[in-house]
C-alpha cells in the first residue's frame, strides 16, 4: 500500500516534470513557427537547464536560497493532490481547497526569494505578480465554488468520478459559463500573453528573476514547467472530465495547451490595471452568473 503510493508519487513527479519541460519546448517551437521562424529544438529547455546547472551563481543570502526551494517544493506537492488520469496519491488528505492553498506557496516562495534580492525590479515584478494573482483569484474562486457547489463536494477525485458518470462538466449548462470564464483567465494563471506583465523583460528586466543566475534560474524554469502542468491539469480535471488513463489525460492537456499557445503568440501585453479590470469584469461576470444558475437549479448530485 505505502509502496505503491511512493511509486505513484515518483512516477507523477517525473512525468509532470517531463511533460512540463516538453510543453516549454513545444511552446518555443510552435511560437517560432507562428512567427515564421524555424525555432529551437524541442529539447531546448532541457539544454538550458543543463547549462544553468553548470554555471556559477550568485546568492543574496539565506532567504534567497530558501524561497526558491520552498517555491519548487510547493509546486511539486500540488502534483500529489491532482488526479493524473486515475492516479492521485494523496487524494484523501484535503481535496480542492488544499490544492488552492498549496498553489499559493509557489508565488509566495518566489516573492520571498526575490524580496531578499534588494532589487526594485524584482519588487515591482512581485508586486505585479501578487496583484495579477489577486485579479485572477476572484473569478477563479467563483468558478471553483460553482463547481464544488454543483457537485456538492470538495474532493477533486470525486468531481472527476462524477464526471465519468454524467459526462464532462461542459455539458451541464450551469458549468458552461464558469468553464468559459476559466478559459478566459487561464492565460493569466499561466503567465502567458496578454498577461505576461510579471516578467516583462523589456520593461522591468524579467521582474522577479532579475537577480537569478545559474542554478536559481534552472530551478525557476523547472518550477515554471510544473506550474504549466498544474494549471492545465486542474482545468482538465474540473471541466474536461479528467481521464481514465494517463495517456488520454496527456492528450487532453496537450490540446488545451496548444490552444493557449496560439493566443500567446498573437497578443500584445496588458498593463496591470488593464489586466485587473479585464479579470474583474468579463470572467467574473460569467462565473458569477454560473454560480447563480447553480444555486437556482439546485444540486445535480
Amino acid at each position: 500500500m505505502v509502496m505503491t503510493t511512493i511509486l505513484e508519487i515518483i512516477f507523477i513527479i517525473l512525468l509532470a516534470g517531463i511533460i512540463g519541460l516538453f510543453f516549454l519546448g513545444l511552446s518555443r517551437k510552435i511560437m517560432a513557427r507562428i512567427h515564421w521562424r524555424y525555432g529551437p529544438p524541442i529539447t531546448q529547455p532541457l539544454i538550458d537547464i543543463i547549462k544553468l546547472f553548470n554555471q556559477t551563481s550568485m546568492s543574496h543570502g539565506f532567504l534567497f536560497n530558501f524561497g526558491i526551494i520552498f517555491s519548487l517544493a510547493g509546486s511539486v506537492v500540488v502534483l500529489l493532490f491532482l488526479p493524473f488520469g486515475r492516479i492521485c496519491p494523496l487524494s484523501d488528505s484535503g481535496g480542492l481547497l488544499v490544492i488552492l492553498y498549496l498553489m499559493l506557496i509557489a508565488p509566495l516562495g518566489l516573492a520571498l526569494s526575490g524580496g531578499e534580492a534588494a532589487n526594485p525590479y524584482t519588487s515591482i515584478g512581485i508586486s505585479r505578480k501578487l496583484l495579477l494573482a489577486f485579479g485572477y483569484e476572484l473569478p477563479l474562486l467563483l468558478i471553483l465554488l460553482t463547481v464544488m457547489t454543483h457537485y456538492n463536494t470538495i474532493s477533486i477525485v470525486e468531481i472527476v468520478n462524477k464526471q465519468f458518470q454524467a459526462g464532462w462538466s461542459f455539458q451541464h449548462l450551469s458549468l458552461l459559463l464558469p468553464g468559459i470564464a476559466y478559459i478566459l483567465i487561464l492565460p493569466a494563471i499561466l503567465g502567458f500573453r496578454p498577461f505576461e506583465l510579471i516578467q516583462a523583460p523589456q520593461e522591468i528586466s524579467s521582474g522577479p528573476m532579475a537577480e537569478y543566475s545559474g542554478k536559481f534560474l534552472a530551478l525557476t524554469t523547472i518550477q515554471h514547467a510544473f506550474n504549466i502542468f498544474i494549471s492545465i491539469s486542474l482545468f482538465t480535471n474540473l471541466f474536461l472530465g479528467g481521464a481514465a488513463n494517463p495517456g488520454y489525460f496527456f492528450l487532453k492537456i496537450l490540446a488545451v495547451f496548444v490552444i493557449f499557445l496560439f493566443a500567446n503568440a498573437v497578443f500584445p501585453r496588458f498593463r496591470i490595471e488593464q489586466a485587473i479590470k479585464y479579470l474583474w469584469r468579463w470572467p467574473s461576470i460569467l462565473a458569477f452568473a454560473g454560480l447563480i444558475i447553480v444555486l437556482i437549479t439546485g444540486k445535480n448530485f
Partner: peptide
C-alpha cells in the same frame, strides 16, 4: 533574432539581465 535569420534555432536568445546571460 527575428524571422529572417532566427538566432533562436542555435539556442541564442536575448535575456534581460547580465545575471542570466553567458
Amino acid at each position: 533574432i527575428t524571422t529572417r535569420w532566427d538566432a533562436e534555432r542555435f539556442g541564442v536568445i536575448p535575456v534581460a539581465t547580465p545575471r542570466q546571460a553567458n
